[in-house]
Design a protein around this nucleic acid. Structure first.
Lengths: 267, 267
DNA sequence: AGCTAAACGAACATATTATAACATTTACAC
DNA sequence: GTGTAAATGTTATAATATGTTCGTTTAGCT
């Protein structure tokens, strides 16, 4: 009876919990088998395969026939509070549109943020570009891209945040000149003000726009009308503003009058 | 009777109490399911979802399909060709000796390298120090240390190497002043010359010594008598040289005449 | 090489869960 | 009581996860 209850703990778990459990199996054993896990968690083998496929993307295992083993290469772990993606689809669509602005040979600046991180994913197959970023996540994403040179800005590592800020970042940024800067935002005021939830990030964002010839703000519609701690400028200072069509047309029209080219995407 | 009372305790609770209870579930299980909790607390699934949404904001958990799991730190992977540790014991002993040179409140520079990485491990419990480094491995190691502020230098990410180099790194380094710089070396010539196997690292090392009041070179005996591509200076430029006792005493005596304090450790 | 059993992946069908909007209940002040 | 706000429940629809089937690939064997 007791045994049964303990086993039950491993059943009827949400998929993410099951995947975490699978990962922990590697602490005990060097490898796992699909059939064994299927039995253990009382799900079909197909589900385990899908779990392993997810883990292969995220969690550094290597799939084999019949199971998986730990990845060979060594990892450096950086803290990253896995925030919930709020408008994942919109962010991806916005990133796709942003990708179209990029041409071969350009030097880009990529800000911290989930939307810019999505853009980084799409830039993996770019040719001969340089990406300057304060984000360890962006750097991690692009480090293997053959056509991309990654320059990480210096600075203080904020605890629990995968990015760099501070005076050093600002000084470091001043060393560069870029063609195009992509920035996220934690809020866009109805008057077009751009907000960050962190003062240091706001200062960095301001400098990014100065050292880049053109700049582009990426924000899904949920950010519009929101404010946050620090204002880093207004849409009058940027050249492109990309959002999704769920944003009120009247407000976008007002934003357009400030100067930036407004681009909207479907989802 | 007892059982009944315990079950009853879980029903008709104010929302905050229920949320606390949910949080405690994570101590027992790897994750919780919406349907299970709904049954357990005798409320609708929607209510549980709202509870989890609240708990998610408090940063403890992460919602998933079907339930929630504890927030997991996402790993940012940086390639790290795990080189074979040649004189692991000697390097650890050298790092222990280097650790003794560090005092609270100091600003340190830690170079790239396996020996300096060992030192980073020992610095985790230091109080109120600042570590400036071009090494992602060092930064990763120290990011959670409460008494350590980590400043990562900017620069180009070398493919397959966990460190930053290039003109940006050099400029960035110039922004700082430190009390003590710790450097590794790929070779120490019999004349006291310090060698790196990478030209860019050599330039960075040279600047490190300039911006630091004192400097310390860490190298096990196998490096003595070796040369490498780039010479970044000589032992006459450094204040401390730490190696292990397997190094020939005659050569160490000659090194001492150049100026640095020579420290040897047993293994 | 050729064979065989196991494992894989794609596509579809099904079941479960999430979200948003609205309806209802509860709690509490007055 | 009555009004109000917060919490909870309900429903329809969308999104996601899972199971199943089947043709293909793979590992291991002779």
């Amino acid at each position: 009876m007791n045994i049964r209850r303990q086993i039950t703990v491993l059943k009827n778990l949400p998929s993410a919990a099951r995947q975490t459990q699978i990962r922990e199996r590697f602490a005990e054993r060097p490898g796992v088998s699909v059939s064994g896990l299927a039995l253990e968690f009382d799900v079909s083998a197909m589900t385990i395969r899908r779990d392993l496929a997810v883990l292969e993307d995220q969690a550094h295992i290597q799939r084999t026939h019949g199971g998986a083993v730990l990845t060979q290469r060594m990892m450096l772990e950086f803290d990253y509070r896995g925030r919930r993606e709020n408008n994942g689809a919109a962010k991806k669509a916005i990133a796709r549109e942003a990708r179209k602005l990029v041409q071969s040979g350009q030097r880009l600046i990529l800000d911290t943020g989930t939307t810019t991180l999505e853009l980084a994913v799409l830039l993996k197959d770019a040719l001969n570009i340089t990406v300057i970023t304060p984000s360890l996540a962006v750097a991690s994403e692009l480090q293997h891209a053959p056509g991309v040179e990654v320059i990480l800005l210096g600075g203080v590592i904020r605890r629990g945040s995968p990015d760099l800020t501070g005076p050093a970042t600002e000084h470091c940024l001043e060393l560069f000149a870029a063609d195009l800067a992509f920035q996220g935002a934690d809020g866009i005021g109805l008057d077009g003000a751009i907000y960050n939830s962190d003062l240091r990030l706001a200062r960095v964002d301001k400098i990014m726009r100065r050292v880049a010839t053109q700049s582009c703000v990426l924000a899904d519609h949920s950010k519009i009308g929101q404010t946050a701690l620090a204002r880093n400028g207004t849409l009058a200072d940027v050249d492109f503003f990309i959002t999704n069509t769920a944003a009120p047309a009247a407000i976008l029209k007002r934003f357009a009058r400030l100067g930036p080219k407004i681009i909207t995407v479907k989802p």
